[in-house]
Structures are given as C-alpha cells and as structure tokens.
C-alpha cells in the first residue's frame, strides 16, 4: 500500500503567534515545529503500513527549513520524504497549495493520502478537499478511526452529534482528527537513521507548474481584525437565592 501523508511546519503553537502587519500573514521567523495535528496523520499512515504492508511517503510544501518537519516524520518511521520548496510559492493561497501538493503526490503515486483536518496556523481547512478534487478521488474527512480490510477502507467520521460510518475503496484522501491515535515518539534509532532515507526537494518547474504561488493567489487577505472581547460573565452573589438562579440560568440555556 502506498501511503502519502501531507505535513506542514508551523510556528510553535506553544508560543504566541504574531501577524506581520503589512502582509497579514503569520510570522514564521521564530521557533517552528512539525504541526502537532500532522503527527496523528503520520501515525495513522504508519499503522496502516505496518498492518497491510507498504510504506509512508511524507510530502510538504515549505521553505527550506521545512525539511525539519519531514525529518521528524522520517524519524517516526516514514520511508521517504518530498519537499516542494520554491521562492515563487511564498504567499500561496489554499488552491495553489493544493495544486502543488497534488502535482507532487501524482508523481509519487498513492493509494491513500492522509492529512490533518486543518493546519494549526492557517486553519483554512480546505486544502484536503481541494487536493481530493484535483487528484480525482473521494475525500473522507474528520476520520476518528480507520480500518482497512484489503479492499474497503472503513472510516468513523466525527460529526457534531456523533459519527458517520463511511466506506470507500482506494484511492482516497482522508483527513484525520487529533485523537485518532497516540502518535509515537521518534526513537533514537529512527532519528539517527532519518538522514539516510530517500529525500528529494522539488521546485515548481520540476512539477511543471507556472501559475501558482503568491502572484497567482485567487484569494487576498484584506484585513485582520482583533476578535471582539467576550462580555464578562454574570457574577451571582449568594444572598440565599444563588442556587436557584444558577439552575434557572442553566435551564434557560437548555443545559439541564
């Protein structure tokens, strides 16, 4: 089974993010890490490969330092990595990103493409579906479990009220939720072996793409506005009626 996992390097979510006031883009010059959400996808891919044979290729579109995210995935157990890195790609919108990823993934070939539901920096959450569209395969999103029997992939798809049971044949694009599994830590041996695994860096011209990147972005960030501060909560002083007032409040909100 040929499994491709898309990964992204993002500013460390543990440190406060900053927007560049002129471009409205997230500043990426600080500490960057493999998107924690992507670790679940890598783990899901590795588990499928371990159970059914085959291997995992990680694909990332990023500046050159994005190689660190790929190296971590290789250290966790992925077999090979592809980095698409090109100055032209700076400022890419979601569709450009999806086109670049689709082109690289088509070159590799795949049975399953796994991504997170969204990145922990841009949060657009649309790249996976675009990717599926461009690859001409179904997208099954928000998977909270994956089971494959050799012909059919069975997915429990998280919804707001419960879950859907979805069955699909391959090839397919699947997005996985955080919590679908417990991502493994890279082992020392994995870390030390990561550098000797196949790794290639591609440019847009390698992929035969010219109309991608910031210059061709179809969407523009017009403004960035601070979220409205939430109203302070209501404080109930206990004058003997507090319990009833709290119960009434909860009942009104249909919580109880």
């Amino acid at each position: 089974m040929k499994i491709v996992v898309c990964v992204k390097q993002v500013p460390d979510p543990n440190t406060p993010g900053q927007l560049d006031p002129s471009t409205h883009r997230l500043r990426r010059d600080g500490e960057v890490v493999l998107d924690p959400g992507d670790e679940f996808g890598i783990e899901a891919g590795l588990q499928l490969a371990e159970a059914h044979g085959g291997d995992v290729t990680v694909v990332s579109m990023a500046p050159e330092r994005g190689v660190d995210a790929i190296r971590k995935a290789l250290a966790m157990g992925a077999a090979s990595g592809v980095l698409i890195s090109d100055p032209l790609l700076e400022g890419s919108d979601a569709l450009s990103t999806a086109r670049v990823l689709a082109a690289a993934i088509s070159r590799e070939g795949f049975d399953i493409v796994i991504t997170a539901t969204e990145s922990t920096d841009g949060y657009s959450g649309v790249v996976p579906q675009m990717l599926a569209g461009l690859l001409g395969v179904p997208a099954v999103t928000f998977a909270k479990s994956l089971k494959y029997d050799g012909t059919t992939l069975r997915v429990l798809r998280q919804t707001e009220t419960g879950h859907d049971r979805v069955e699909t044949s391959l090839p397919v694009v699947v997005t996985v939720t955080s919590g679908i599994n417990e991502p493994r830590y890279p082992s020392l041996r994995g870390i030390m072996g990561a550098k000797s695994k196949p790794f290639q860096t591609l440019t847009t011209s390698d992929l035969g793409l010219t109309d991608v990147g910031g210059a061709h972005a179809g969407e523009t960030m017009v403004a960035v506005v601070a979220a409205e501060e939430r109203q302070a909560g209501e404080i109930i002083e206990d004058d003997g009626t507090a319990a009833k007032r709290i119960v009434d409040f909860l009942a009104e909100k249909k919580v109880i």
Partner: peptide, 14 residues
C-alpha cells in the same frame, strides 16, 4: 546538530 536537536525535542516532549 539536527539529530541532537530532534533528540532534545523528543525527550523534552516525552
């Protein structure tokens, strides 16, 4: 080096 940094990050996360 890259390896040591990843080892550090991994043990720190653990």
């Amino acid at each position: 080096g890259d390896d040591e940094r990843l080892i550090r990050d991994t043990v720190r996360a653990f």
